[in-house]
């Protein structure tokens, strides 16, 4: 699974993307975020406040309780601020 980060999430994590192989108990985006938090202090800092996180699975916006099973690309980022 390819995980992408944007904006301050990217800066806190320290990379813009990474390949990961989460264990079977990672079912939702929230599970993935919790699991990723263990990878480094930067990940933990980026994901400390879930209310500030948004996500996309295979490039479609989803809530954090959405499934990541079978996903090839998951993106984690702050609320969007374009326009």
């Amino acid at each position: 699974m390819r995980v992408l980060y944007f904006a301050w999430v990217r800066e806190a994590v320290g990379v813009d993307e990474e390949q990961v192989a989460p264990p079977a108990e990672v079912v939702t985006v929230a599970d993935l975020v919790a699991w990723l938090s263990g990878r480094s202090e930067g990940h933990a800092r980026a994901f400390a406040d879930r209310s500030r996180l948004r996500a996309a699975v295979d490039q479609a916006f989803v809530p954090l309780d959405a499934s990541v099973e079978g996903a090839t690309e998951v993106a984690i980022f702050p609320p969007v601020t374009g326009g």
């Binding site: 944007f6 904006a7 996309a56 916006f61 993106a75 980022f77 702050p78 969007v80 601020t81 374009g82 326009g83």
Partner: peptide, 14 residues
């Protein structure tokens, strides 16, 4: 289009 772009399209400002 401009209202929904602001919430539905992934852009981030710094």
């Amino acid at each position: 289009l401009i209202d929904r772009l602001k919430t539905d399209a992934p852009f981030w400002k710094r």
